[in-house]
Each structure stands twice: as C-alpha cells, then as structure tokens.
C-alpha cells in the first residue's frame, strides 16, 4: 500500500523540478553564446551589472547588521507581544513589491522623510536602490538568523555569564562565532533577494540608464523596447548568479 504513495510523491517532485529545468533550458537555448557576450559587453549592461553587485552587497551587509541582533532577540527572549512583533517582521515578505516601493516613496515625502533626505538623498538615487533592496532582503535575513539562533543551544551563553561575561560578551564571544555559518547563509540569501528585487527599485529609485539601473531593471527596459536577446542574456547571467549563491548557501549547511 505504501509504495504507490511514495512513487506518486516522487513523480510530483520530479515533475516540478523538470518544469523548472525546462524553463531554464528554454531560456538558455533561446539565443547563441555570441549574442550573450555581445549583450553583456554593452556599457549600459556592464554598468547595471556592476551597480547590482555593489548595491546587493551593501544591502545584504546592512540587512545582516539588523538581522543578527533582531534574530538573537527573537530566539532568546520571551516578551509580551512577541507573536505580534514576529508577524510584523514578516510584513516585507507578504507585501506586494510595488507597495513597498510606494510606501518608501510616500515616506520620503513626509517631513521626517525630507529631513532624512537632506542628510542622504535617497529618492531616485543609488542609495535609494540599496534602501529598496534592503527593506525586503532584511526580512529574509532576519528569518534566517532567527532560525540559526533557534537551532543553537543557549546553554553555552548561559555558562559564559557564570564565567564573568556580560550579556553582550556572551553574545559576541560565544553566540556569534557559533552562528557564523548562519550569518553567511543570511548574507547570501539577502544578497540573492536583492539581486532579484525590481518593483520597489522601479518605484522608489527609478529606472534611469547608467544611473539607477540594476540587472532586473535592464531586463525590463530591454523587454519594453522589444530587445528580447538582451533581456534573455541578462536573465541568464542572473540565473547563474542565483545558482552560485544557492550552492554557497548549501555548502554552509544552512537550508534556504
């Protein structure tokens, strides 16, 4: 009785994976390697690729900076309203991407937002690209770090307290070194999320060529002028980057 059941599950899994492989294979076979190289050597595409690498790294680093303390708090302490805080931390994950962009755009039109903009101009700037990537990527980084700390026993940190450590020292000298694989995974996941971010960037930072153009923006711009070869070449480059990140995350032993 059990064998047909497991065969059915294997067939569903194989069918799902085959669908994805077909999608990627079809995209890869759409044009020639020469056409890809021609596209990827265009100055505007190289600019978008360079800007994507820089902004994704900055957004992922910023996300990790928030994710580590928030993840540690959520994993180690119980407090009133924790369930609500937990739900609130997931808001960027469930919000439609365009809505995140609109929220950013409207916030920076308020008096507080304008004050911040006087210090760091964000709307329609490269810094705005980083912020738009960060707001969504941070939620994924927080989830990963919370999962990491949840899986690590708090006992070594408690023993550190009895050995003379303050709460911060126990966190810094014991919890952080133990969580380094989780931190790498959180960085990679938020980097990958940032690479694919489009909606909030389009709305908040714009899609200006050689200025705020990142790779997803390039795909959209190339598609909008009917240049399918270029859009496919950039998409393939993004697929390669995403797969590399997935391999790196798996190699750290963390599940995405």
């Amino acid at each position: 009785m059990r064998r047909p059941f497991w065969i059915l599950l294997i067939a569903i899994t194989a069918g799902y994976l085959a669908f994805w492989f077909l999608l990627i294979a079809a995209t890869a076979g759409f044009s020639t390697p020469q056409a890809w190289m021609q596209t990827l050597l265009k100055p505007e595409i190289r600019y978008a690729a360079g800007l994507s690498l820089i902004t994704c790294t900055a957004a992922a680093a910023l996300a990790l900076l928030f994710a580590v303390p928030i993840g540690y708090l959520m994993a180690r302490r119980d407090f009133r309203g924790k369930t609500w805080v937990d739900a609130a931390l997931d808001i960027p994950i469930v919000l439609p991407p365009m809505v995140v962009g609109i929220c950013l755009l409207i916030f920076f039109q308020t008096s507080l937002g304008r004050q911040i903009e006087r210090l760091i101009p964000l709307t329609y700037t490269v810094a705005g690209v980083v912020l738009a990537q960060f707001v969504v990527a941070a939620a994924f980084a927080i989830r990963t770090m919370r999962g990491t700390f949840d899986h690590l026993s708090a006992r070594p940190e408690q023993v550190a307290l009895t050995l003379g450590a303050t709460d911060f020292q126990a966190f810094w000298h014991v919890a952080l070194p133990t969580a380094r694989r989780g931190m790498l995974a959180a960085f990679c996941i938020s980097w990958a999320r940032s690479l694919g971010e489009f909606g909030p960037i389009l709305v908040f930072a714009g899609a200006t060529r050689m200025r705020t153009e990142v790779l997803p923006t390039t795909v959209w711009l190339e598609l909008s002028v009917g240049n399918l070869d270029s859009a496919v070449a950039v998409s393939l480059a993004m697929i390669v980057l995403a797969v590399l990140v997935l391999v790196l995350v798996r190699a750290t032993g963390e599940r995405v």
């Binding site: 408690q158 450590a165 000298h173 014991v174």
Partner: peptide
Amino acid sequence: GYVPQDLALFPATRVREQIRFPLKM
C-alpha cells in the same frame, strides 16, 4: 562555577581559549 549536564563547551572556541575565557572576560 557551573558545569551543566551537556557541559556547554563553546562550539567555535578552541580548548585553550575556553579555559582562558573567564580571565579574558
């Protein structure tokens, strides 16, 4: 001095540093 049941050694710290830990703190 507290030695819990699982001993709670610091997973990412070498023995030398584990023993020096109280002095360092």
